[in-house]
Amino acid sequence: MKDIEESLKPKFNVVKWFAATPMFSPAGLIICALFIAGFYGLLNLFGLRVYTGILSGTFPVPATGKQLSAFYGFFYLISYFGFVFISPVLIITATIQTILYSILKISIKKI
């Protein structure tokens, strides 16, 4: 009986919650910021940082080939600029939003 009751209780579903979170809400902004940071971290993990040598016209791993090096470098640069320019702005925006909502007494849950 207890098991049946337990199974009937609504469970927290991360995917549903993620899909239902408006992008411009504090939670949505934080998710975006973390997503960008995670993507940047992943590229770092794969060692794509060395390909930024394209900025000086240097191709650090000759075996990779110039075109592929340029592609990796460009990809890494995009993620880096996202990480240093966009992620922090999103986090600060989320913080300011939260503060303004609490001052103006708007419920975050309703957003």
């Binding site: 411009f24 702005v89 600060i92 925006t93 989320a94 303004l100 909502y101 103006l104």
Partner: peptide
């Protein structure tokens, strides 16, 4: 409407704050 305005004002302020602190 109010929330949208708050959202954009926050974003604008955040951009200014980060531009100044970034370096």
């Amino acid at each position: 409407m109010k929330r949208k305005l708050i959202g954009w004002v926050s974003f604008f302020l955040a951009t200014i704050i980060w531009s100044l602190l970034f370096h």
